[in-house]
């Protein structure tokens, strides 16, 4: 039933956007901006660039909808991610393959909500996050992307399959491999620190 309600809401928002409804666009922006930002940020590893790209992705989505080419994605969220992927590819192309490999430099300090409570647990959490954050850029682009979509932005397997143009089975296998690759990187790092 909730699935049906979600489909109805999706359909309603899409129809409103096609009718150039400003309110609907803002609602879509409010609901998705943080996820899209995170997706872009983990892929290009630069906060300022991520801000610009995120803004551009929403504008491109608006234009895409107005040009009546909406039907190539199953959901609006899938469409946003597809446009984000293409925008990131364009970004790399424009920068001649230049890639920011570290997310963990002085300019990109990790923000954790409620930082006033610096308990040992918080510090531990922060350390873990920094570790994972530093290892994510070392993964293959395909693995990194799927991990972000599934475990950070909570997309369903169907949505990921729709965005990446793969079937559900392939997505599942890819996720498993991506997790193993990330775990290996982290364990390797922890092992070298212990030595």
């Amino acid at each position: 039933m909730s699935n049906l309600v979600q489909k109805f809401k999706d359909r309603q928002v899409l129809s409103r956007l096609k009718n150039r409804d400003k309110e609907a666009f803002i609602r879509v922006y409010d609901q998705n901006v943080k996820d899209i930002y995170r997706f872009v940020y983990f892929k290009i590893s630069n906060r300022e660039e991520a801000n610009d790209l995120t803004s551009m992705i929403f504008l491109k989505t608006w234009n895409h909808i107005q040009n009546k080419t909406l039907e190539d994605a199953k959901t609006l969220r899938a469409l946003l991610y597809k446009i984000a992927r293409n925008s990131i590819i364009d970004y790399y192309r424009e920068n001649n393959g230049k890639q920011f490999t570290s997310l963990d430099n002085q300019d990109n300090k990790l923000e954790i909500i409620d930082e006033s409570q610096n308990t040992p647990e918080d510090l531990d959490k922060k350390t873990n996050l920094n570790l994972i954050k530093s290892k994510l850029p070392l993964l293959k682009d395909e693995y990194r992307e799927i991990i972000i979509m599934r475990f950070i932005n909570d997309l369903s397997l169907e949505e990921i399959a729709d965005i990446s143009g793969k079937n559900r089975g392939n997505v599942r296998v890819l996720l498993h491999r991506a997790l193993n690759a990330l775990r290996e990187l982290i364990e390797k790092d922890q092992g070298s620190n212990n030595e």
């Binding site: 400003k22 666009f25 803002i26 922006y29 409010d30 901006v33 943080k34 930002y37 995170r38 940020y41 983990f42 991520a50 801000n51 995120t54 803004s55 929403f58 504008l59 608006w62 990790l110 923000e111 954790i112 909500i113 959490k125 873990n128 996050l129 994972i132 954050k133 991990i147 475990f151 950070i152 932005n153 997790l179 990330l182 775990r183 982290i186």
Partner: peptide, 29 residues
């Protein structure tokens, strides 16, 4: 590992940027 990855959701864009960008997009559309 998945639990730790889930914690990366705490990474958010700057709230001032969010508000400014919202206004900017609204005027553009």
């Amino acid at each position: 590992l998945i639990v730790k990855l889930n914690n990366l959701k705490t990474i958010n864009p700057d709230s001032a940027w969010l508000a400014n960008n919202r206004e900017l997009l609204l005027s553009q559309i």
